[in-house]
Design a protein around this nucleic acid. Structure first.
Lengths: 165, 165
DNA sequence: TAATCTATGGTCAGAGAAGGTCAAATTACA
DNA sequence: TGTAATTTGACCTTCTCTGACCATAGATTA
């Protein structure tokens, strides 16, 4: 459980080097967006490509204010975006997301987070319903294709909300 | 994931280049209809003719609001039309929802459905971004099993979207 | 008119080009 | 020394590109 500012010793592992490199790129990038290729980045740091995924999945997550998109196949890419948030918003977001990562968080509690956003006027009630639908547990999500099925179910539910108005 | 039209930068591949070219033509074409020949387009982009079919069948599909007609033989042609979908007609999209459970539906296709809703004015662009985030494959699911993490990741991503505005 | 020729576009399977996932092995740290 | 973070590679999925072969429309000719 490493927190910024507590690190006194080494930063000399590949993951941190890549992290720093990407953050530097993001700082100087117009729009705080960078576009790159996994294998090139891996080649640059002389590591296996999956190392890049490790870095992205541990350092460039929404909780930390980053959004990552990607595409496979020829012309594939990774796009990393740094969200530019005001101080208050960033803090509020942090708080909420810290809450999300607590262990054993129930669906009801997730749902509660959305409810509070609506109450606070940060999210319209319609947006709130869309989000509720997105996290509603879809029945029959057994097996390995669970994640994709989860997405399909979420989208189907969101469509239902949208069309019910 | 990637929603066409929101992309600001992209890795270059032939398919995307052709896609952009055609969309540009469509934007400036009276009646949102263009008429062209497969082999000429292929020659323009220095690719095999079937590449054109690939682009048409992956990017200019009804789900994304395009209609393609063609004719073979001498004087053959391709006609591509961008459909104007009125809000009233949007109930057609209900069919899409029925098709969401079709096997082999890719994330891009799911994403395309959302894009279509935005285009149709059924969904605000902000709502669209929320929804895109909800179906994006959580890149932070490494080594975890899955569905609940997926929901948490989706909500985290949606929060990030909401706070970035 | 029927047969044939020629100019198009269509289909499909396979190769190639990315990125994604998982779990075991290793390393760093408290 | 035990736990968490990192590193790696085998294997998977998705997207793109190509070419051989197919189908059709219109023009030409017998």
């Amino acid at each position: 459980m490493v927190r910024e500012g507590q690190i006194t010793t080494r930063m000399s592992n590949i993951a941190s080097n890549i992290e720093n490199y990407l953050k530097h790129l993001l700082e100087t990038a117009p729009g705080a967006v960078i576009l790159l290729q996994r294998k090139e980045l891996a080649a640059l740091f002389q590591c296996v490509p999956s190392q890049i995924n490790y870095v992205l999945s541990t350092r460039f997550i929404p909780e930390k204010g980053y959004l990552v998109e990607s595409r496979r196949g020829g012309g594939g890419f990774l796009r990393i975006r740094k969200l530019e948030l005001s101080r208050e918003k960033a803090e509020c977001l942090m708080t909420l997301q810290r809450e999300l990562n607590r262990e054993g968080l129930s669906l009801r509690e997730l749902s509660g987070v959305i409810g509070r956003l609506v109450d606070a006027g940060l999210v319209t009630s319609r947006e709130g319903r869309i989000m509720q639908e997105a996290i509603r547990p879809a029945i029959c999500l057994v097996g390995e294709t669970a994640v994709h099925r989860c997405r399909v179910a979420a989208l189907a539910g969101m469509l239902a909300i949208l069309f019910s108005e």
